[in-house]
Amino acid sequence: MRLFLSDDAGVRELTDGDQPIIRVAAPDLQRARRVRARIRSGTEDLAVILDVTVAVAGDFRSARRAFDATDSDETIRYAGTVAGLVGLLGDIETAGVADGVTLIPASDGQDLSRIGHDVLRGLASRDQARAS
């Protein structure tokens, strides 16, 4: 699973992928999976990276407050804890929805770099547990 961050500092990858990427946005995981299948059926070998707008806090209610009524429904939205986000990303990978994600903060108050590194540690722990 490739992991990108998109914030005021620009778009940067926290993982080391060598495939060229194409970023996509979708309002739900089913549509994202169809888009990935269509892209991957082409002749180019591209990694499909799904945009996910995130609000991470210690609990769901606190995280949910980061989204306001003007937020777009054009991207997958996640509000919750880092552990829940790790679970979502694992499901995205397992179900073949995308080859990676771009995390986009739902609000300016999110420390996206910290969240990204916490997610990477969570994914690594999950992979180690599966290998055992």
Rank of each mutant, 00 (worst) to 15 (best):
D16K: 13
V48W: 02
A32K: 01
Q30S: 15
V11M: 13
T53V: 12
A37H: 12
T53I: 06
R61L: 14
T15V: 06
Q19R: 14
S41Q: 07
L29C: 06
G10D: 15
V52C: 09
I21S: 04
I39Y: 05
I22P: 01
A57Q: 03
M1G: 04
G10S: 08
A63P: 00
A9Q: 15
R64C: 01
D7L: 12
T43R: 12
A57S: 12
D51T: 04
A47F: 06
A55H: 02
I22N: 00
V35I: 15
F4M: 11
G42T: 13
R12E: 10
A25S: 14
L14A: 04
F67C: 00
V11I: 15
D18F: 09
R40V: 14
A37Y: 10
S6M: 10
F67Y: 07
V35L: 12
I49E: 01
A26I: 12
G42V: 11
R2F: 06
A26F: 07
V24T: 13
A63E: 01
I21E: 09
V24W: 05
R40T: 11
I21Y: 04
R38F: 13
D51P: 02
V35S: 03
T53C: 03
I49G: 03
A55G: 11
A32P: 02
A37L: 14
I49K: 01
A63L: 05
Q19W: 03
F67V: 01
D16C: 08
